[in-house]
Design a protein around this nucleic acid. Structure first.
Lengths: 332, 332
DNA sequence: CTGAAAGCGCTTACAG
DNA sequence: CTGAAAGCGCTTACAG
């Protein structure tokens, strides 16, 4: 059942049927009703592919992320999908693993579809976005990058001030009397470096010692946190607090400390980052930083839509994380 | 740059260009090379929409799930997406919240696209799939349901034996000397009922008392587990073990018990379900049931592809969960 | 207010 | 092995 069948049955041209379907104004009320009756009678559904072919749009946005199994990306991707859906767009999800080759492979096939725009979630895309071939592909789409800068024609960014975010942890610890603080850094992505900088600057701001020794690189996982603590103990370091780059690491640190009979927070305080479910499940509950993934997601959608529909109604600004107190920080 | 431009420049017809693009055999090697050179020179990308319009396929599969923020669905959706991607399909993700209205809304817009198939993830879709309008919409697609039966023409199911899965928990507890066991049931979906039945039958198999009192309905969340424990304590029940319908509930139970000074597992043992990250993060680590979401996901993709491509190479069978020992069960 | 016609960029019988 | 032509189901100037 296509537009021709409807037109024939309603005794009008396909142009008129098209007008009715798309709620164009220039149709006589009587004609409109006649056509609508036929439409309803056959439960007519327009063929989106045919429409896309002429309009060059598919009302689809691709969301490239690292791995939606990570709660932080899951939350972001979820909110993006819901927001898109409410505006009549579909979301294609691509788990790139943060890898250049995979990102390229996904973009390759996205280029053949009439995808309306791309949202990049994860600060790895800052690095990936520097690759010339990736840039060539990206520049054919409107693009929004969550947490980074792309410097392309039709692209926007949503920035999260992670430097400020980690600073909140340090401030909070210092306010509670801590002075021997170290940082468990998660790998080497853009936002990880931001956080590290935030840590160092904040330590300096408070006049605390902060060199190589205070920053410990660990794997971005529960295991990473455990290993970090082991290292601290082997080196016989005397710290009263550990600031972690994410909640997984913090959970690992807490578990390792606890299993060694070191009480959290009485003997060592720990802070996380992301305000994930892990922070609530951790025993004790983590004091952590909410970096507002839902807000980031909503802004991403708003921006990509304004890029797609050229409404120019975009707003932006930098997102400020917030500290969420838990029970993993003690006053000294 | 379309097929016409290429044809003109290579001095052939668009038919020939199309043949080269699609690697059809009937092309002279010399002609083929000439066309390929032009293709390469212009970095030609075929327009998928135009192709879809004639082939009636978009190499896209929609994944309807409840909420990808839940780790279990995140894992399933992740694996489905990756498997689809490797086979050249894109995944559209839809977070329906498990609601009929939303499911209908998503299906409505999916029907206008040439989506090749639909994978339903979550046993709620058993209920939703009984609605007449939903069925009418679903029957226009190949459909695979993870964990349920749909009873539609072109549909397959991947079944997980959750009854057996919960039985494993009970067996394990009984082997460890427990006899006073209760079950924290998560809501009222298909698989929740399966698990409840599994619990009751398993208790009976071991000759243990199991009536209304042993099954406690709780919210499907950490909070649910806490409330369940509160209820147990208010009613002054003497149990030595709690079997939980999922890991979130188990975490809540453990937290509530611990906060009341009741030691897990020394005084009360707790088991979870899903083998999620939560189980590993919980203190103590949960003994839980792995219900193999990755395996389920892979089978779903295999089945939907065989339905789409009519390869008839499908395999099926029922998936058996496995017990994963943690530290939340003590021997009495 | 309405319609004939062109066009979106492909694939695919069919004929040669 | 190759090509002319129809067709997929729409939208959109353009003319009336």
């Amino acid at each position: 059942m296509n537009i021709y069948d409807i037109a024939r049955e309603a005794g009008v041209s396909i142009t008129t049927v098209s007008r009715v379907i798309n709620h164009r104004e220039q149709v006589n009320a009587v004609t409109r009703e006649r056509v609508e009756k036929v439409l309803k009678a056959h439960n007519y559904k327009p063929n989106a592919t045919a429409r896309n072919l002429v309009t060059k749009s598919s009302r689809t946005v691709a969301v490239l992320t690292i791995d939606i199994r990570e709660p932080h990306y899951a939350r972001t991707a979820y909110t993006i999908e819901r927001e898109l859906s409410h505006r009549g767009y579909e979301a294609i999800i691509c788990n790139t693993g943060g890898e250049l080759k995979e990102t390229e492979r996904y973009l390759q096939s996205l280029m053949e579809k009439d995808v309306d725009g791309i949202i990049l979630v994860g600060s790895v895309f800052n690095e990936i976005g520097k690759d010339a071939r990736i840039r060539d592909m990206l520049k054919t789409f409107p693009v929004v990058l969550a947490n980074g800068r792309l410097d392309l024609e039709r692209s926007y960014s949503v920035l999260v001030d992670d430097q400020y975010g980690i600073g909140l942890s340090v401030d909070h610890l210092v306010e509670n009397g801590h002075r021997e603080i170290c940082y468990f850094m998660d790998l080497d992505t853009g936002s990880a470096r931001e956080k590290k900088t935030g840590f160092i600057q904040s330590m300096k701001k408070h006049g605390l010692e902060c060199g190589q020794k205070q920053v410990i690189k660990v794997a971005h996982s529960v295991e990473g946190g455990r290993v970090g603590v082991q290292q601290l103990i082997e080196e016989n370091r005397q710290v009263t607090a550990i600031v972690c780059g994410n909640d997984e690491i913090a959970v690992g640190a807490v578990k390792e400390l606890t299993s060694r009979g070191i009480k959290v927070p009485e003997q060592i305080s720990v802070t996380g980052y992301n305000h994930s479910e892990y922070a609530r499940i951790c025993q004790p509950e983590l004091t952590t930083i909410d970096n507002k993934p839902e807000l980031v997601a909503m802004l991403c959608v708003q921006l990509i839509i304004s890029l797609i529909e050229k409404t120019d109604s975009y707003s932006s600004g930098v997102i400020r994380p917030e500290l969420v107190p838990g029970k993993s920080v003690a006053q000294l």
